Simulated assay, not measured.
Amino acid sequence: MISETVIRTRYAETDQMGIIYHANYFVWFEIGRTEFFRLFKMDYKELEDENILLPVIDVGCKYIQSAKYDDEIIIKTKLTKLRGVKLIFSYEIIRKKDNVLLAEGYTKHAFVTKELKPINFKKKMPHVWEALNQSIEGGN
């Protein structure tokens, strides 16, 4: 399953050259991830209410072409791995008007409690685990 979220780049996101500042792509990954969870009628607030956090433990981005001010972009997000206490999302950032791939990246997360202790998410929320697992092509 792939979540697609469309946003318009803002002037405040640009650098002195009129190009979107590189760190904003990581913010866009978060937007994509948040919308991905909404597909399962789940949001970060609900997870936090259940004493579950998903800190980023690794992140990467490959920049291919520059996004610029006022571009409409599509954030494509998919869950690519779900195993143990870890999950990995992959992202594609695409300029909507010409369907050009601007960047691709990933984030790796761990299921932890508010005390930052690993948590068995499969046991704590089996219905959500199963739905997430099924969102990966063929499951894990």
Rank of each mutant, 00 (worst) to 15 (best):
V56D: 10
I73T: 06
Q134E: 14
G138S: 06
Q16N: 08
I75P: 02
I2A: 06
L102C: 15
T107M: 04
A12P: 00
R33H: 04
L116G: 00
E115H: 08
K124V: 13
A12W: 00
A67Y: 00
R10W: 01
Q134M: 07
E104T: 12
G139Q: 07
K76R: 15
N120A: 13
E4K: 14
G105Y: 02
K96S: 12
E30N: 15
F37W: 12
T14E: 02
Y25I: 05
Y44L: 11
L47M: 15
F26M: 13
E137M: 05
K108I: 02
I20P: 02
L39F: 00
G60C: 08
Q16Y: 04
T5N: 03
K123T: 13
L116I: 07
Y91V: 05
I52Y: 04
T14C: 06
E35Y: 01
M1I: 06
V100C: 03
I94Q: 07
G139N: 08
K86N: 14
Q65Y: 11
K123H: 11
L47G: 11
S3C: 13
I20G: 02
G139L: 07
L54H: 09
K76D: 02
I136G: 08
E137T: 11
K96P: 05
K114W: 01
L79D: 03
K96M: 09
R83C: 07
T14L: 02
T9G: 04
I119D: 05
R10P: 01
E48F: 01
T113S: 15
I94G: 07
K124T: 14
A23H: 12
E46Q: 15
D58P: 02
I2M: 12
M17I: 06
L132W: 11
R10C: 01
V27Y: 02
R38G: 03
D15H: 09
Y91G: 05
K41M: 05
I88P: 01
L82V: 14
K97R: 15
K114E: 11
S3I: 00
I88L: 07
F37V: 04
F37H: 13
T34V: 11
L39A: 06
I57N: 06
K78G: 09
V56H: 04
E35R: 06
Y21D: 03
H22I: 05
Y11P: 04
R8W: 00
L132S: 09
N140G: 11
I75D: 02
F121G: 06
I73H: 02
E35Q: 13
F121C: 09
F37E: 08
Y21V: 03
N140H: 13
I93G: 04
W129S: 07
E104Y: 03
H109V: 09
V59Q: 08
G60D: 05
R83Q: 14
D49R: 13
I136C: 07
I88W: 00
L54K: 10
Y21E: 03
M125D: 05
E48H: 12
Q16M: 12
L39W: 01
A23G: 13
I31P: 02
K86L: 04
K62D: 14
E13I: 08
V100P: 00
Y63A: 05
E92P: 03
K97I: 13
M1R: 13
V56M: 03
F121L: 10
T80R: 12
A131R: 15
